[in-house]
Design a protein around this nucleic acid. Sequence first.
DNA 1: TTGTAAGCGTTATCAC
DNA 2: GTGATAACGCTTACAA
Lengths: 328, 328
Amino acid sequence: MTTIRDVARVAGVSPATVSRVVNGLVGYSAETQRRVEEAVESLGYEPDSLARGLKTKQTAVIGVLAPLVSDALASEIMSGVESAARLRGYSVMLGRTGPNSTFAASYLRTLRTYRAAGVILISAAVTPDMRRALGSGIPLMSVAIRDGQRFPSLAIDDEVAAYDGTRYLIGLGHRRIGLLAGDPASVLVNTVRKRGYLRAMAEARLSPVLEDGNSLYDSAPPALARLLAQDAGLTAVFALSDEMGAAVVNELQRMGRRVPDDISVLGFDNTRTSQHVFPALSTIAQPLERMGELAVERLLATEDSVGPVPRILPHRLIERGSTTSLTT
Amino acid sequence: MTTIRDVARVAGVSPATVSRVVNGLVGYSAETQRRVEEAVESLGYEPDSLARGLKTKQTAVIGVLAPLVSDALASEIMSGVESAARLRGYSVMLGRTGPNSTFAASYLRTLRTYRAAGVILISAAVTPDMRRALGSGIPLMSVAIRDGQRFPSLAIDDEVAAYDGTRYLIGLGHRRIGLLAGDPASVLVNTVRKRGYLRAMAEARLSPVLEDGNSLYDSAPPALARLLAQDAGLTAVFALSDEMGAAVVNELQRMGRRVPDDISVLGFDNTRTSQHVFPALSTIAQPLERMGELAVERLLATEDSVGPVPRILPHRLIERGSTTSLTT
DNA sequence: TTGTAAGCGTTATCAC
DNA sequence: GTGATAACGCTTACAA
């Protein structure tokens, strides 16, 4: 391995000077700079991140924690995180939050021992013991969730988004609209979204019909059955995740119901999944990649001073083939 | 931050002894161990990974490189990597391989400066400059690709898998079978899989019909159109990725053709996507999560000695609703 | 069984 | 403008 001393020797200067040049500090002549850069180049020198981190008490590492590493929502956010991080010279460390917060806490402790520059939490709440595990020096922010006001977060306004989605369906002439919610316990936004649906229904003096799934594909068919058992005459189903929305579209077709002619289906999130069914899922879009990018910017904003970043991002409704107006 | 010296002071021993206890080495009395563990516990001490890595020249970090962080295939492999890594106390650093290998090489250089324990490359070939960038001390292996014999890899036998898929379709009575291949340039397995299809077709004295997509959803509809332009009477389409397979199922339905009654569709990989369409996609399954886990085991096998790990994993055909026998 | 001390590769403080 | 030198927190000979 080539070290800073090797470079110093070749360039005929001291390690301190090499360090100055490599880090773009001031205090050396143009001639020295040239010689050092030449030596760096010819030796293929790259500063050791560990030694540097040990000395400066900080590494260019950003930790990312997601409930499931492999679902579309987290993947798209992670993709945004990865590119923003790379752009700024940071690397990403990936971890999964299990069902209990001890899982996450243990990962955060590890991140602390690597002296990560910050941590991004995807659709999971920050618990006090998690915050404690990370220590006080490392900024933490959650994405795609609104965690009260206790910790910084970045999300759409889920209540309004669900309200808007419901209003959209009502505007299409639907009156009997079922809600397929996610698991309220595991993913907090579900409660908030549910509230938006209820508000829109109440305002329109419509009676709500709802069932809980767990946001994943497989949970939707049985929940749909329960929904239909409550009201067989539903003309629209609002699923609080695209995976569930896709499952509803498919399941309805399996049952011989036409989408959207017999029943409209609206999804949530605008992940790739929403485009993988036929008819493609109308959905409420969250700017997922962008959220990942912004999370990185905001996390690092304390040091580099980027301007303030909004914490509530805009959602928007995307109309595709799975919804249509009710023609009575 | 609490350091090993703090622990030593509280326990009334030297830092060296604390180190021994913490690392489970030998050479201390039971009494000493108790006192040290007590101090560790009460101070919440956790060894600094940077200092440790600097000294030992190795960190518990595994690098993972994928072409797209957000696609289903890579996500599922990464999920396996993550859990196997965590199990063994390792953390995962995530990066993306761009179109050119300089992207990957730069990431590998970073991984080297962190003294990663190993690197896993997902469906991308190892180029000489990548190997050079990583240096010689760090093991590297590729997953879901077969990279000649030059570097260790872990994959199914793609040629045979594609052959088996084609045979399956032929066994169902199909004679006019179109192949929707991926981009041969970017993903090497596509060439190999294509070969398997061609062999099966040749053996059965059937004439091949093929078009290239790029493995992603959007590339499939136009490629399908070209396939149909070549032979409008196709009764089966074999898509070399589930995303393309899903797109074909949906596009066919949009065109008013029934799947599988008019046309059977077979996918490849068995990612979540294959279940997100209706009818669900029959497909060739790769054990993706397992591949991620095995990759970690094998990477670390040099140090800890786990038994030998097979490099060719079994594929299997999964029959779902998108394929049926041809009833003439 | 335990402690002392050197050193991993860097940065930062201080002289010059 | 440049160079010694002292840490950063840990592991590991080597002594005791």
